[in-house]
Design a protein around this nucleic acid. Structure first.
Lengths: 98, 98
DNA sequence: GACATGTGTAAATTATTGCTGACACATGTC
DNA sequence: GACATGTGTCAGCAATAATTTACACATGTC
């Protein structure tokens, strides 16, 4: 169970992905709808969400809509990272021990 | 006075820069020495430190050594960022209002 | 003067990322 | 069947980031 700080930081170091998290923080949503709301192409949203999911910042699930369409909903994970020099020092320490 | 979360995150989203911060957290140090300790080329360390300084995560100062050489020392700034969905939501809000 | 140390920068290369435009596959309605 | 919605993926291009090598300039010592 690696917390992989670098990975999380890399996932967050992008304006679009921050906007995605900000939007999802107000409630779960699905890919096409997010693309419309944030004015991004759907493949792009798909890719950003995958990147966020890989490091556990959001979680996705499949859901069937009333009219039978398979829709992919996402929620933010309740993460909380404290970013201080000391926290980074610890992260680097565990990072360097193979 | 912009806190520019994306900029800070981008600056931190790199293993070498995290190692630099971790090293500086144990005490101030200068460029050539850091390059030796972290096994990186000096221009690379120079560039990473500049990137960190731009967003205020480290601060640099010139200092004259005993034998008269101009040396560039760096210290970590005492930063503390709380990374939660809500904090990101706030950051994006202030980010979107031009 | 040659050699060690330190500083800075610029050019060129490589690797990575962000993004678009296709394509394929479903479902339900006119 | 044509059209709307939704899903996924892949190829390619453009922009950015990471890295090296080489140069310039200082200082002090052998």
């Amino acid at each position: 169970m690696s917390s992989d700080l670098v990975g999380v930081l890399a996932a967050l170091a992008n304006p679009q992905r921050l906007r995605l998290i900000a939007t999802l923080a107000s409630g779960s949503n699905y890919v096409s709808q997010l693309a419309r709301e944030l004015q991004l192409s759907r493949p792009l949203v798909h890719m950003h969400l995958r990147r966020l999911e890989e490091v556990g910042l959001v979680v996705g699930r499949m859901e069937l809509s009333a009219d039978g369409k398979a829709m992919r909903f996402f929620d933010v994970a309740p993460f909380a990272y404290q970013l201080t020099p000391e926290a980074i020092q610890d992260a680097v320490r565990t990072m360097e021990e193979k």
